[in-house]
């Protein structure tokens, strides 16, 4: 029971990742594939951000006024880990860039083949 309580958050992130992965493989509509890619990316980012979390009274990674004037020493366990937040801030913006390029390619394919279904596009290519 302790094991389940300690790990169930990871399992929910893995379930989210599986949903996105299944949509990328099995769905034949191109927009559905792109939605699956978005879900996959968000699950990975969620996993990274959750590694920054510290149980037991840790606050946001923002210094208060008393800390800024050096009234007492800064305890490391008092603040959340700021490093994964920074890395994932970059990853969210990059995920929007990939979403834009993928949608542009999908619009191009619709202009050429007049369908978004993968099997019909394969039939038209042959």
């Amino acid at each position: 029971m302790d094991f389940i309580i300690a790990k169930y958050n990871y399992w929910i992130y893995i379930i989210l990742m599986m949903i996105g992965f299944y949509a990328m493989i099995a769905k034949s509509n191109l927009i559905k594939k792109i939605i699956g890619m978005n879900i996959f990316q968000t699950a990975i980012i969620l996993f990274f951000v959750s590694m920054a979390y510290k149980k037991g009274g840790a606050t946001l990674p923002i210094l208060t006024n008393a800390d800024m004037h050096g009234e007492h020493a800064i305890q490391v366990a008092q603040y959340l880990n700021p490093l994964p937040h920074v890395l994932m801030l970059t990853a969210i913006v990059v995920s929007i860039a990939t979403l834009g390029v993928a949608l542009a390619i999908a619009i191009m394919m619709y202009r050429k083949y007049h369908t978004l279904e993968e099997d019909e596009i394969l039939k038209a290519i042959k």
Partner: peptide, 10 residues
């Protein structure tokens, strides 16, 4: 989860 900057960006 305490990641306010990431929440704003999202």
């Amino acid at each position: 989860l305490g990641a306010v900057d990431v929440a704003f960006t999202e």
